[in-house]
Design a protein around this nucleic acid. Structure first.
Lengths: 252, 252
DNA sequence: TCGTATTTGTACGTATGTATT
DNA sequence: AAATACATACGTACAAATACG
């Protein structure tokens, strides 16, 4: 099988996902409104012609989306009727675009290649002979630079995906798709810093201006490093949303 | 039953949690090392004398902790042997303390009361006659202020919990406990801003210095507002960790 | 390259426990 | 106290992905 980072769409959709989509649709249509109690699980599973277990798997997904909340003895209560999951920072995405106050309407992408430094070999788990692609992206809101990204990616990942490296637009599309892919994850660090000369030039701000910096290594679903990147947010131009949540239960 | 925001500990522990703890222990002891494949689910469930379903529930918890990863056909692979879940910003916690580069070793807490403003009535879902507690906390690393928090909490929440309001230390303890409670959640906004006069004084920095601001309303497991707060991070003193992750699957 | 065995994923059914109404 | 509703736990069967000879 072709082992690629981006999964092709699965033709086979599990039943519980179908049920989840049906219920989501019901909520969107207003069949049940926020504050309402859904019918009992036994009733619902009968209506939908699935076992209660399958229904409960769907319910779990609805809970993850923050659409419902359930309590033993009480029932499943509708919290919201719309997909509130405007992906926050806790999801992998493109935060410079997602959280820009003024919409980002243009990007400039450049791509180059260099031998993997020792640091790259470490974080991206590469052999010394490897080549990494260096992708720089500048984001603009109108004529104002909104942010800048430095991305390091193993060459083979681009290679496997038949990306036309001449066309920087395609490269950006690929990067965006990568960020949206299923199961991708990473541990990120966020901090304030100061714009040095090069960055100050790119963002058209004064040297020494405070900026927000996000640094991370992203891994695929299969735990293989996909890219390492450093994102710089222009000052006063972003508001980052985060969904914070403590687990219910586990041990205690 | 006594309806309090902080849940008393449950005496009854589900079997799958016990299994989860057993497996966690095994990994910690090094019975299986990172990279190893765990025995098949049928074998394991037999060994542990539980059904495969129960074992799989435990496996789910292990996955959430990032301890294992599983793949259909392959098996359950150990990723790490230790509890890497040093709670990131995606969990509710006390970020000023958790992410301070220099450890926070002292806090100053003050508490006061005021009638709920219209905004408080809205976000905390209070009646006009309600009273809110205003808790201000200054965090210090040694003699340097590391951050400042402004917290608004419905009076009744403190009231229900029999906190001694004279003892500011106890108040702080209560706040900390609240943040760590199960099921608490909120949507937070993070942005850069400038320290105005009062804040500049508190943090002992120049007026206009750039600071990080986190603003949020927290809700209990039962979807009732618990508090609204605004956190200010001293400049250059924090590095925020976040675990970012895209769901595996769901629709597509 | 092709089956076949292994391993996890999905789906069903049933029974009982526990919290809430 | 009884009824309702979700939580846990067991068992079974088959599907789908992977590994291996």
């Amino acid at each position: 099988m072709k082992e690629s980072v981006i999964k092709e769409k699965n033709v086979k959709i599990p039943l519980y996902v179908t049920v989840y989509e049906t219920l989501t649709q019901w909520l969107k249509e207003g069949k049940y409104k926020p504050g309402d109690k859904l019918p009992g699980e036994n009733v619902l599973s009968e209506q939908l012609q699935v076992s209660r277990g399958t229904l409960r798997q769907a319910m779990l997904l609805l809970q993850e989306d923050g659409l419902i909340i359930n309590h033993q003895g009480k029932g499943n209560i509708v919290l919201s009727n719309q997909d509130v999951s405007k992906n926050g920072l806790e999801k992998v995405g493109n935060p410079i675009v997602d959280f820009s106050i003024e919409p980002v309407d243009r990007v400039e992408t450049t791509i180059g290649f260099q031998p993997a430094t020792q640091k790259h070999q470490q974080v991206l788990k590469l052999r010394p002979s490897s080549v990494v692609a260096v992708i720089d992206i500048t984001y603009y809101s109108g004529s104002t630079p909104a942010g800048f990204a430095m991305i390091y990616m193993p060459h083979e990942i681009l290679d496997q995906s038949n990306v036309n490296l001449e066309d920087t637009n395609t490269v950006y599309q690929f990067y965006t798709k990568l960020l949206a892919s299923n199961g991708i994850y990473g541990d990120s660090k966020l901090r304030m810093g100061q714009a040095r000369e090069r960055l100050a030039n790119i963002l058209e701000i004064e040297e020494g201006s405070p900026i927000l910096i996000l640094e991370e290594v992203l891994y695929s679903e299969y735990d293989t490093p996909v890219l390492s990147q450093k994102l710089f947010f222009g000052p006063e131009q972003h508001e980052l949303s985060i969904r914070r949540k403590n687990d219910r239960m586990k041990s205690e």
